[in-house]
Amino acid sequence: MKKSLIALAVAGAMTAPMIAQADATLYGSFRIGLQQESDVNGVDGTDRELDVADQSSRVGIKGDVDLGLDGTKGLFHWEANVSTADSNSYGATTGSGKSMFGERLAYIGAKGDWGKALIGRQYHPHYLLIQAPTNVFNPSSGDYGERFNLGNTYHKRTDNSIAYYSPSMNGFTFIAGAVVGSSGDDSDNAFDETVDGYNIAGVYTANNFTVAASYGDVESSDAPAGDDSKEVWGLSAKYTMDALELMAKYEEADTEVAGANTAEESVWELAARYTVGDTSFYGRYSDYEDDVAGGLDLDQFGLGIQQKLGNGRVFLEHVNNDGDDTQAGDRTVAGYRLDF
């Protein structure tokens, strides 16, 4: 007892000056689940035994910094995936590049009554406004089938990004951003032009209703044969009626590789969540079409139930992918999550 008191006092004495210096918040969300998969990676009949698996755990540090200006503050934000269940899950699959951390966010910026400007590796508005609302499950969207989120390539958390967020104007906010990247030379299939991509988006919130729209285009490589590019646009809506929340999104994307059209995809998704006290019951249905790849048409549905326990929660989730899907199978997770 005495020992722990002394330890507390020492810890208190050491941390107090640090808090005064930097107004930073350490936060995180640890999510581990017991997971069962069938038709792993879309291969029929390939089942995986029960596995303790990480469900997109992350830690981060964020805070404000005094710039000596009236009404404008600096801000910083860093966030990384932490692999809780398996060592070295992120980074290279072999060798010294393996890591327990996965990159998520790293950006700085400034904010005031004029809005917010950010620079660094950050969420693109397409992800925040179009894809996030229907993402009702606890693991990351990629864990339940990457193909249903058309913006995940180039328009989720992207390096070399600059963005401006307007303040809310009678419920309306717009966001404009650009990707400004460069690599070693002009012919290596990487971001090379001065402005390599952009994303513009708007969101309107009134009473219990939110609607959003987004358009983005990213190019990489200006090889002689033609550009690699991805153009994506989407709409989303969310409506809240007491205990029931309804969410919907529609996305379209055109992908070009070396100037040739390789995919013309569209996705629509409906999600609902019903909450009674600390208990939530939720579900999602998604439909994917690609007009180029031989008219591919796939769907997915998922159901989940979650109980909040203070800052923790337990959840049970099942996602069922189309039998024809060659990327993702079916997955059931019994998970435990702690937020701090």
Partner: peptide, 9 residues
């Protein structure tokens, strides 16, 4: 909803 949560958990 609570009944379903009870059975599930």
């Amino acid at each position: 909803t609570e009944d379903f949560a009870r059975i599930a958990f």
